[in-house]
Amino acid sequence: MGTAAEPQFHVLAVDDSLVDRKLIERLLKISSYQVTAVDSGSKALEFLGSRGNNGRSSSDPVPSVSPNDHQGVEVNLIITDYCMPGMTGYDLLKKIKESSSLRDIPVVIMSSENVPSRISRCLEEGAEEFILKPVRLSDVNKLRPHMRRTKKLKTHQQEPREDSERHGEIRSQPARQHELEIQQSQHHPSQQVPQHQQQKSSNNNKRKAIDAEEGLSPDRARTRYSGVATF
């Protein structure tokens, strides 16, 4: 536990503006994330399609790419611009939340315009955050808890019976993360997960309870925070 090297979180950034793509890519990299940047929603779906099929059942409709080619290419968060020609960030968000293989991936929307109705629409559709452009380092720091949650979900994903219920919870409370965490930890004792998994999960929750800010074992956290520590 906590001794294995933590792989970097992988963020898929979507923005049609070259300047903004360069900026968000750098912001994420300096915060120790692995980044893939694409210039449209359809390219994002293309990228996710190949990975969405990774290790999935053969009934998955996405055309298959050899699973081994994409092993390790897991997307922990998608950050997308709102205003893009063709598929908007909102369209992309909807497509992701409608897809059974992709909807666990947290989506964050960026926009240069502060339009309250737009913001609430995105949050209702399941976006985790709405960030106003220009994006700053302090905004990127807000992404961390969302990535952590995906990791937790990933663990549970192996337990199919829990899935639908969990998605329901998350979608109805996009912004109330702490409540959700409490709910989940209370949930645990009744879960019929294999022994090793259960241990892992309850440890995770214990850590969260002890130190909600870190949520990871200290050695792991240190590795990931080191990139930011210089500021």
């Binding site: 360069k22 750098r26 912001l27 300096i30 380092l137 500021f231």
Partner: peptide
């Protein structure tokens, strides 16, 4: 100033690169 914060030893020309992209764009 945010741009300048993103420039470090591993990316010493970041500001010039982004601003040049801005010019072209």
């Amino acid at each position: 100033l945010q741009l300048q914060q993103l420039q470090d030893e591993s990316n010493p020309d970041f500001v010039v690169e982004v601003v040049s992209l801005f010019f072209q764009d």
